[in-house]
């Protein structure tokens, strides 16, 4: 199972800091599209890390069940 980690305002909406999903042949953008729709995340500026590396969302990246995907919004407060 791939691990999805949520941070900041994203975790507030998903109401959890991580979840596990079974990946078959979906690409990174397929998974993100599913999550954005499921949690209605379209209004947030979200950046994505795959296995702790920031990546472009547009890329057709393959995802394995051992991968870790992080949804990172910038924080503004101080």
């Amino acid at each position: 199972m791939a691990v999805i980690k949520y941070f900041g305002a994203v975790a507030e909406i998903t109401q959890c800091t991580e979840e596990h999903i079974e990946v078959k042949n979906e690409t990174l953008s397929d998974i993100l599209e599913h999550l954005f729709k499921k949690y209605e995340l379209q209004q947030l500026p979200i950046h994505i890390a795959l296995n702790a590396n920031l990546v472009s969302i547009e890329a057709e990246t393959a995802v394995a069940n051992t991968d870790e995907i992080a949804l990172l919004p910038p924080f503004a407060g101080g």
């Binding site: 500026p45 924080f75 407060g77």
Partner: peptide, 15 residues
């Protein structure tokens, strides 16, 4: 790290 994007980001007063 974070290319400028549209979207809602809260500050300390709000969050």
């Amino acid at each position: 790290l974070f290319p400028e994007a549209n979207g809602n980001v809260q500050n300390c007063e709000e969050a």
